[in-house]
Design a protein around this nucleic acid. Structure first.
Length: 542
RNA sequence: GCGCCCGUAGCUCAAUGGUAGAGCGAGAGCCUUUUAAGCUCGGGGUUGUAGGUUCGAGUCCUACCGGGCGCACCA
């Protein structure tokens, strides 16, 4: 391949829709093969990761390194290249660390230098040579031998501005990871957090289990499910919205401490706090009640935080501290405090305890004025039951303002079909949610284990469903049967792993903590993702 | 689902309704300690798509496609 042939109008891109530059890179691959170089070799024996070179030799002076004469073999992706005629520099990255290599014609010979010349940014290369320090003081490996380790036919993200295009960051996360160290840090922190949670539970004799993702009844939460179909069985199945009911079947079976960290699927809107598939931890403990679960949950969350970094954690310009214990606040008290702080005429905390008084207040001009002032939709309240009114007031008035980790307790029974009622007040349940930075992060309760009451709760939910509530819980007779065989007193909790990861990594969007967040599938214009047809099925001009 | 904003070269961005530009990257060339290496040269565009208004549209209007943010729903 002559220079003339590679110049200008050369070849077409190897794959329709790819940039012209990829044609040049294909030609360089051919040139490498012409030199007898394997363009995609199978392995390379390195002696050190790049970071290990830095750790071992960064303290050494030029003279120290000359004396040590350390010969090493390193490998990585070429991030930058600086040519000077018969000597060149390149910076390698192995995803964790960077290291400069110094390549001289005298050091690697004609052929080696020619190979180096054919390397593009983004290619992989192995370098055998001696650890040295340049005049400007940069720790480097001076190459004796260049081994080509893999051609990138497409160019890496632009090196000055990094990768800014949010769409490409999410769709082609590998480019995001290559270009943005913060992104690598975020996902390492997430991994450390999840590992710490597993360790925490394993240390307390919980066993990790896996329960069905495809369920005939989508239970365990209030949400709209995805539906799929099994051909051989000829039945519709739901992607699970929660593992809860299966995990409690396991506790009934004698697995006293179980947990699962896995995906749930909910067919609902996408937002900075919602991805259709998201990761949830659920853990169940026989003989525990709601209070025991809160005690465990706060320790677990604190352990997760400690694994992700040192507190207090900055989050969106504020700070979140995980100091124990987390405050506990009954839902009605939370609403009452908020409304009393607004000094709303006609309102007192006692209103929330008496359905008739709440009804009257919600119909009063004072509430109308408050709703107008706070931009609430007052209309839907009157159609709700007492408990749902309280829950809605909580969601609208309090939820978003709970910044420091806070347990909210005593949820109304109407919104808690799987939780055990309080012995002293059957309108409330032994249930909590943990709020951090205005987000619901965990949800736990004393598990309802009376089969007949559970069945009645499901029937109540069915009535809600008939009235048009698509998120009302489905009837699950098989689960009721499991309770019929006896579930010991049990406490359970679900923790939203993605949201916790957001808080611990100062990520404003759930998409920043999910490697491949859900996006509308790409169409046309060199970006189609149909595997059969490659990245472009249409416009060849692109 | 609704509202607001965005879409110009491979990338980051310019361009009072009047000839589409810069920097970087890529290409050719020089250069044996550079690091956003430097210097020289020549390329690079159906301004997201389709219509419309206008003598004239990157710019104004409509629809569509894609994305972001907010609201709603939820976790």
């Amino acid at each position: 391949m002559s220079a003339d042939e590679r110049n200008g109008t050369g070849g077409a891109p190897p794959i329709p829709g790819w940039p012209e530059e990829s044609a040049q890179r294909v030609e360089k691959a051919s040139a490498l093969r012409g030199l007898g170089v394997k363009v995609y070799p199978n392995r390379y024996d390195r002696t050190h990761r790049l970071g290990e070179i830095v750790t071992a030799y960064d303290g050494k002076s030029i003279e120290d390194l000359e004396r040590l004469a350390a010969d090493v073999r390193v490998a990585g992706r070429v991030l930058t290249k600086r040519g000077h005629g018969k000597a060149s520099f390149a910076t390698l990255s192995d995803g964790e660390s960077r290291l400069q290599v110094y390549v001289r014609l005298d050091g690697v010979g004609e052929k080696g230098y020619r190979i180096f010349d054919l390397i593009d940014l983004g290619d992989f290369v192995g370098v055998a040579g001696r650890v040295m320090r340049t005049r400007k003081g940069e720790l480097s490996v001076e190459a004796r031998e260049i081994t080509f380790l893999g051609k990138a036919l497409l160019p890496p993200p632009e090196k000055w501005h990094g990768l800014a295009d949010v769409e490409i960051r999410y769709r082609q996360r590998y480019l995001d990871l290559m270009a943005n160290p913060d992104v690598r840090r975020t996902f390492r922190a997430r991994s450390a957090m999840v590992s710490a949670i597993r360790r925490f539970l394993d240390d307390r004799d919980y066993i990790e289990v896996e329960t069905p993702m495809m369920q005939p009844v989508a239970g365990g939460a209030m949400a709209r499910p995805f539906v799929t179909h099994h051909n051989a069985l000829d039945v519709d199945l739901y992607l699970r919205i929660a593992p809860e009911l299966y995990l409690k079947r396991l506790v009934a079976g004698g697995l006293e401490r179980v947990y699962e960290i896995n995906r749930n699927f909910r067919n609902e809107g996408i937002s900075s706090m919602h991805n259709p598939e998201f990761t949830m931890l659920e853990f169940y403990t026989a003989w525990f009640d709601c209070g025991d679960v809160m005690d465990t949950t706060e320790l677990l969350v604190a352990a997760a935080a400690a694994a992700a970094g040192e507190g207090p954690f900055p989050y969106q310009g504020r700070e979140v501290s995980f100091e124990l214990p987390f405050p506990r606040l009954a839902m009605k008290d939370a609403v009452g405090q908020r409304l009393e702080a607004e000094s709303v005429p006609g309102f007192s905390r006692a209103v929330l305890d008496e359905p008739e008084r709440l009804t009257a207040w919600l119909q009063s001009p004072e509430f109308g004025a408050l709703a107008a002032r706070l931009d609430l939709d007052a209309e839907p309240y009157l159609a709700l039951s007492h408990g749902k009114r309280v829950a809605r007031l909580f969601e609208e008035l309090v939820e978003g303002s709970l910044w420091a980790p806070t347990f909210v307790t005593d949820y109304p029974v109407e919104v808690s079909p799987l939780a055990k009622a309080r012995p002293d007040d059957p309108s409330l349940t032994e249930r909590f949610e943990l709020y951090i930075a205005g987000m619901e992060v965990a949800n736990g309760f004393s598990e309802l284990n009376d089969p007949l009451e559970q069945r009645q709760r499901f029937l109540d939910q069915l009535r809600e469903r008939e009235r048009g509530d698509l998120e009302a819980h489905q009837m699950d007779e098989d689960y009721v049967r499991a309770l019929g065989h006896g579930l010991p007193p049990t406490g359970g909790c679900g923790v939203g792993i993605d949201r916790l990861a957001m808080i611990l990594t100062d990520s404003p969007s759930i998409r920043d903590v999910i490697l491949f967040p859900q996006m509308r599938p790409e169409t046309g214009r060199g970006r189609a993702s149909e595997a059969e047809t490659g990245p472009d099925t249409g416009d060849l001009a692109e």
